[in-house]
Design a protein around this nucleic acid. Structure first.
Lengths: 331, 331
DNA sequence: CTGAAAGCGCTAACAT
DNA sequence: ATGTTAGCGCTTTCAG
């Protein structure tokens, strides 16, 4: 294990000079710089960031907590976060947490002294941990719902409004929202808030438009979609247009609809959220609402990196109009 | 920032005693143990693993290098690796690397002093880094192709043989393999080796059965699938059965086939690899060959954790028979 | 421009 | 059963 001391010995300089060369900080004469660099290369010295972080009380690691790695949306997000993090010399640690595991996962994260945490799991971080992180200077971001210090908000409104317009144009009789997760999240999700709003505005009735809860993420997302689609057909057979919380859930739902002999979009219009890369290849190609995932990832990393100080970062969404919401009497 | 010293002071014991309580190693009287534990809880002390790792020259981090996070297969694998790692008190760092970025990514990994690296990228780690890792006691696993020290080998043979039997039963005239990646990987991939073998054995001709190269992972995987499917139809219009390197590529290929008016499986039988969770929901449900992903993940983590010393770990594969390979004259 | 001293938070090895 | 000493590999601070 070659360390800074070995380089210093070989180059005949002090350890401090090696540090100056390696980090590029501080004054070093060009001559010694080259000499030291030569030794570094020859001995294949790679500095120990762990040790550096320890003494400088910094960290170059971002922890990301996900509820469900198999949802491609999170992975696209993680991919972008990794790119963004790399640009700043940071790395990404990935964690998975259900409701019961969160404390243990947070312990792992904190004991690894990361510089920040992006919580994409669908529940809040216990206040005890929030305080602890604050005390340690770790930044915490909640994906999905609002935070007092910083949040990334998706402006779903215009795209959802446009969807409702198309529902009306096509003479859809009754709309629904397959939410998939439980009561708590339903109350905090802006997609559902806008849904209620537009139901009223477009005359569908806030009360008469069902919102289907489920037990995501305990259960696999597409299974939740299928199960709730089945429930929808049984309990609200007159629904002919449905939003799904995200594209994966929509896949499950559409699959159920098709299995029951419904034609999409003739018998049922379906709109997802996320715009997964595969959504345009689904059968039928899925209409979906989403913001730029790169921008979302950048917002998280920028906040953790300290470029953004707090407040609300709003991202605009687009309606990607595809077969699953084409007009019945053609577009 | 509360540290071990603070706990020691509060409890009126030495720092070493705190360590003994916190790590659970060494003798501590039950009485002091409880006293110290009380202080730990009261002060919300979470040990600094970074510092512990530094002095004990260990690491609790596994680095995983992926070529493409958007392939759900990798994510299922990572999810299982995270679970397996957590069981051993380890965490997972995620990296993404194209061919050109590999050195820089390896520098990041090594400077973070991980305990092991799982390289799922589709190219080899430069020998310089392999040596360096060895010298530092980091374990390295290559997914995909063989390694001199340790490898996880998928035994695709029986499942592929069964697929060939079905091709024959259905009277398929000509088979192909959409490989997607370049020459180097093609020569190292066992799926393609078995394909050649069985082409011969089943009388399809080793030379006359095309293997289509592409530029994955430079290009998105489903695009590669679509592009190569198009190429296949143009250059080998008589092919009526095709393997695709993995399910995502198969999705792209099937989409192209359907777009050109082909019926699956009547005009073209399609077999993928990986058995993604969504593959059974594809239209048509995709026939696919895969090993147990949990077992694969466990093998990697076990090797890095030191439970397996080396050698070859062989995993059996299953043929998940679905619509895309149903017989033309019915099953 | 370069170096020496101190110490980050922890564990290993040896006392007691 | 508990404490002491030394030091992991590095940065910070201050002195030349």
């Amino acid at each position: 294990m070659v360390s800074r001391r070995d380089i210093a010995a070989r180059a005949g300089v002090s350890e401090m000079t090696v540090t100056r060369v390696v980090t590029g900080k501080g004054y070093v004469s060009e001559k010694t710089r080259q000499l030291v660099q030569k030794c570094v290369d020859e001995m294949s010295y790679i500095p120990n960031k762990i040790a550096a972080n320890l003494v400088s009380r910094k960290s170059n690691a971002i922890a990301v907590i996900l509820p469900d790695l198999t949802n491609p949306y999170y992975m696209q997000l993680v991919e972008e976060m990794i790119s963004e993090a790399k640009r700043r010399g940071q790395i990404v640690m990935l964690f998975r947490a259900n409701e019961g595991e969160i404390n243990s996962v947070l312990d792992d994260i904190i004991s690894n002294r990361v510089c920040g945490v992006v919580n994409m799991a669908l529940f809040e971080v216990p206040i005890k941990y929030v305080k602890q992180m604050q005390a340690m200077g770790m930044r915490l971001v909640h994906g999905g719902y609002d935070d007092d210090k910083f949040s990334v908000r998706m402006n779903y409104a215009p795209a959802m409004k446009r969807a409702f317009e198309l529902f009306r144009r096509d003479g859809r009789k009754k709309v629904a929202f397959i939410a998939g997760f439980g009561e708590h999240q339903v109350e905090h999700d802006s997609r559902i808030r806008f849904f209620r709003e537009y139901c009223k505005e477009f005359g569908y009735g806030e009360e008469s438009s069902p919102i289907l809860r489920g037990n995501y993420p305990a259960e696999k997302i597409y299974v939740v979609g299928r199960t709730l689609a089945d429930e929808l057909l049984r309990e609200h057979p007159d629904v002919d247009a449905v939003f799904c919380l995200n594209d994966m859930m929509a896949f499950g739902a559409v699959n159920c609809f098709k299995g029951k002999g419904l034609s999409i979009p003739q018998d049922m219009a379906v709109v997802g959220f996320d715009n997964l890369q595969i959504s345009e290849y689904f059968d039928p190609p899925l209409t979906t609402i989403a913001a730029d995932i790169k921008a979302e990832a950048k917002a998280y990393v920028d906040y953790i990196g300290g470029d953004i100080e707090g407040g609300v970062c709003t991202l605009d969404c687009e309606l990607h109009l595809r077969e699953s919401l084409r007009g019945r009497e053609d577009e």
